[in-house]
Each structure stands twice: as C-alpha cells, then as structure tokens.
C-alpha cells in the first residue's frame, strides 16, 4: 500500500511538473510573440503605407495592406523617393564609408597603444576617452557649428582642392562632417577595441617581440589580422550610427537643400508640400534610407556575431 501511495505521489508530481512546463512554455511564447508584434508593428505599417496612394492612406486603416491587384496600390512613391533621395544617398555613402573606416582604424590603433604598449599618461588618455563616450551630442552642437563656420571654414582653407575634377566647394562641409563623425566615434570605438585586445593572449604579442617585430609590425602582422571580427562589429555599429545621424549634418549644413546633405537630412523635407504631408512618400523614403544599414548588417553579420561573442580570440 505504501508503495502504491509513493507511486501516486510520484505520478502526481510528474504530471504536475509536466503541466507546469507547458504553462511556462505558453507564457514564454505569449511574451515572445507580443514583443515581436510590438517591435514589428511600426515597420509593417511603414511598408504597407509606402505602397498606398494618398487617398488609400486616409481611406484605410494604417496596418491593412493594399495588394497590387487592389485599388489604391502604387509604386510611384518609391520611384519619387528614389529620385529625391538619390543625391542624398550618394552623399551619405561618401560620408559614412570614410568616416567608418577611418574611425575603425584610428580606434583600433588607439586601443592597441593603450593595451599593448607602455607609455606615460596612458591612463589619463583612457579616462578621457571613456568620459568622452558619455558626452552628449547635443552639448557639442553650438561649439561644433562655430568651429566649422568661424574658426575652420574648410571651404576657404581647402581652396586648391576645388579645382580638381568631381570636387566642389560645398564638399568642404561634407569633409567637416566626416571629421566630426570620426572625432565623435573614436572614443566609443576605442573602448570597444580595448575590450577585445585585453582578451588577446599576451604571449602572442611577446612571441612576436622575441621574433623581432617592432610595435608597428606587430600591429600590422598580428593584431590587425586577428581583429577582423571586431572590425565587423565596429563597422556595423559606427556605420549605422553615422548613416542615421541627423544632428551633425543639420548644424554643419544649412538644411535639406544643401548639395552635400546626406539622405537623413534630405529625408526631413521629403513629402511635405502645401497640400499636406504625403505619408506614403515619406515612408518609402525612410525605408529606402534605412536599407543600406540593413545590407551592411547582412553582409558582415556572421563576423559581427563572432566579434560579439568574443570568438576568434587567440
């Protein structure tokens, strides 16, 4: 009899834990799906709206899609957005690619100097860099605007360059923007690289020293090649940052009409007219502008994951 009651007790426990497990699962899935819906909802609305005509936007619910065979479907807004943003997208690439590359290289070099080489004052430099990562962008806008317009007007200083083919005086503002992006990006990128370099087996650098390599050769032949996953992380991170940034172009360039304005700035004026706001056009423009960051993420995604998890460290 006692064995029977034991059996029952065990059985009831097993059943209970089984039910418990399914409730848990149900809860987890409910929360997960809720989060997915919350996060994807705006994106879905944006995509759906970008294919609607102006009348369809006002006539239908925002999240109800209009299919190609239905009234109110249009591709014209994508075409129009592309026409308007074309120049801005080119400017954005001209800005983001050098800004990201140079920031990554400088950040990696700085982190290398801070982690692998002993020199006086490196703690102070590190502290400065760390505190700079907390520096709010908004606090920099006035000094930055004055710096580029009053003290260092690149358009005047680089006068000789504008004679070259493909370069125009208004590119001075683009260069100013790139330099600002680099300056603003170096601290956080350095801190990222520093974390990575601290996990590198110290004996690797020592072995290279004994093998006769000087500090530059060690960087070039050892550190740089094994930093590839971290470069992917930094590239994605900073590319997105620079591509999406609005404040710096806004204060360095006069407005969306500036010939060197990046896409984010041009986007601000898109779809606004006397007849009101063309939401479909604005959505198409926004999605178009967001596309390159998604592409970058897809291209460097596997390296990114490797860098995030710290894989590839020797």
């Amino acid at each position: 009899m006692s064995s029977e009651s034991t059996y029952r007790r065990v059985a009831s426990k097993l059943t209970f834990s089984y039910e418990d497990w399914t409730y848990r699962k149900l809860l987890v899935y409910t929360i997960a799906f809720t989060l997915v819906i919350i996060f994807l909802f705006p994106l879905v609305v944006a995509i759906v709206t970008s294919f609607k005509t102006r009348t369809a936007v006002t006539g239908t619910l925002p999240f109800v899609p209009v299919f190609p065979w239905q009234d109110g479907f249009t591709l014209a807004q994508w075409g129009q957005a592309f026409d308007v943003l074309q120049g801005g997208l080119v400017n954005s690439f001209l800005r983001a690619i050098p800004a990201t590359t140079i920031t990554a290289v400088l950040g990696s070099l700085t982190a290398y100097a801070i982690t692998q080489i002993d020199w006086r004052g490196q703690i102070a430099v590190l502290l400065l860099l760390v505190s700079a990562t907390f520096f709010p962008t908004q606090a920099a806008i006035v000094p930055l605007a004055r710096f580029w317009t009053v003290y260092v007007p690149l358009e005047d200083h680089l006068g000789i360059l504008w004679g070259l083919p493909l370069l125009e005086p208004y590119h001075g503002d683009l260069i100013a923007l790139i330099i600002s992006d680099i300056a603003y990006g170096i601290p956080v990128v350095t801190v990222l690289f520093r974390g990575y370099y601290q996990t590198i087996n110290q004996e690797l650098v020592e072995a290279a020293k004994i093998d006769g390599a000087n500090i530059f050769r060690i960087y070039q032949r050892i550190i740089l090649p094994i930093s590839v996953p971290m470069f992917a992380v930094v590239f994605i991170f900073h590319f997105t940052q620079v591509w999406n940034s609005f404040l710096f172009p806004l204060i360095i360039m006069s407005g969306s009409g500036h010939p060197a304005a990046p896409a984010t700035l041009v986007l601000g004026g898109l779809g606004q007219s006397l007849e009101g706001i063309n939401y479909g056009l604005r959505m198409a423009g926004a999605l178009l502008t967001a596309l390159p960051t998604v592409v970058v993420f897809i291209l460097a995604g596997d390296k990114f994951a490797k860098g995030i998890t710290g894989g590839g460290t020797a």
């Binding site: 004996e203 020592e206 290279a208 020293k209 004994i210 000087n214 090649p225 094994i226 590839g312 020797a314």
Partner: peptide, 20 residues
C-alpha cells in the same frame, strides 16, 4: 636591450602560435 635586439627564441606554455 629590447627582446627584438636579442637573438633568443622562446617557446611559451600556451605555444602562442599566430592563429591567422
């Protein structure tokens, strides 16, 4: 003298092979 200037070779416990 720095390690670079000495003509010695070292084998480390971790081997410290260049992974790439």
């Amino acid at each position: 003298l720095s390690p670079q200037e000495r003509n010695v070779a070292m084998v480390f416990q971790s081997y410290a092979l260049y992974p790439h």
